[in-house]
Design a protein around this nucleic acid. Structure first.
Length: 288
DNA sequence: TTTCATCGCCGTCTCATCAA
DNA sequence: TTGATGAGACGGCGATGAAA
């Protein structure tokens, strides 16, 4: 094996990739740390997804199947991005499997005086099994509109899914998609609302990761920031580390990774940041 | 034809185990 | 106690087939 590593280009590349972020991900993150405009676009992309969905829904006419798909896609991406950017960059499967109903619910909706959403992941659902590393995550109502976007998703987009509205969810013989619009087809004798916050278009199960990857790829490209779902984690970590190397521990906790892993993945930022911080220290010494 | 679910492959990451 | 290693889980993504 050692010999093979010395001779095989493929294995050499694999060994290298194991130690650092992939070139593709670095290519995505670099503009975020270098370009203020890109950074702001990344951090507020949920607004743009929401605007796209609202544009599609701004009609009194029945939606076509394609328009319905687009509205669901942009709306779901807005909700997902709000969780990642205004709450915590959860792993994709954890976010897609959030449940706000039922005995295993792990997403608490705003109620009473509380205006925030609360994510309460169990250690069993996390890649990191250490319970101490699984904090509760508040998604607050503030200027970044995390909670507002989730509330909008819940009230406007989620009911566009067959199992997204308890007042008219079909249990058997689902209505044609064309009729699934703002609850126009109602059957109060039926109630099978999905327990999942993000719902699969054709069942009451959670939105599948493959379909979501397709949606986020398409939606992000449409707003001029092509990315994958996992790029939320990479992007946020890169931005925070670029601000200061002292954020290393903070970023590790934020991502649910170990500091060693963060240091290894974002070494390319560290090198540049170390040089810049050192230059600043020299300038401080020189100019007092 | 379009949309979506499922499957599978490869890379990445965490964790448990073991040797130094 | 620390570092190396391998197993297993998860992320990323394409291929394929079923259903509308």
């Amino acid at each position: 094996m050692v010999k093979a590593k010395k001779t095989s280009e493929f294995l050499k590349e694999g060994e290298l990739a194991d130690d650092e972020m992939s070139p593709k991900n670095i290519a995505f993150c670099r503009p975020l740390v270098d370009d203020m405009r890109k950074r702001r676009q990344f951090l507020t992309q949920h607004f743009e997804y929401r605007r796209q969905a609202e544009d599609i829904l701004a009609t009194d006419k029945m939606l076509s199947a394609s328009q319905l798909r687009q509205a669901r896609m942009f709306g779901t991406c807005a909700g997902f991005a709000a969780i990642e950017l205004c709450g915590s960059p959860l792993r994709v499967t954890n976010a897609l499997q959030l449940r706000h109903r039922g005995p295993t619910s792990n997403l608490v909706l705003p109620r009473g005086k509380a205006s925030h959403f609360l994510v309460k992941l169990d250690a069993k659902e996390m890649k990191v099994k250490d319970r101490k590393k699984v904090p509760q995550i508040k998604i607050r109502k503030n200027a970044l509109e995390g909670a507002q976007t989730l509330e909008w998703y819940r009230k406007t987009i989620r009911p566009l899914f067959p199992y997204g509205n308890e007042e008219w969810c079909p249990v058997e013989n689902p209505q044609p998609l064309a009729n699934v619009r703002f609850g126009r087809v109602q059957d109060r004798s039926r109630s099978a609302e999905s327990i999942y916050f993000f719902i699969a278009p054709q069942s009451g199960a959670h939105l599948s990761k493959s379909l979501f990857y397709e949606w986020i790829s398409e939606a992000s490209a449409a707003i001029g920031m092509p990315m994958t779902a996992h790029n939320f984690r990479h992007g946020l970590a890169s931005i925070l580390l670029k601000r200061s190397l002292a954020n290393l521990e903070k970023v590790a906790k934020f991502l649910g990774n170990t500091p060693a892993v963060v240091q290894r993945n974002y070494a390319w930022i560290n090198v540049e940041a170390v040089i810049e911080e050192t230059q600043d220290e020299i300038m401080d010494e020189a100019l007092g």
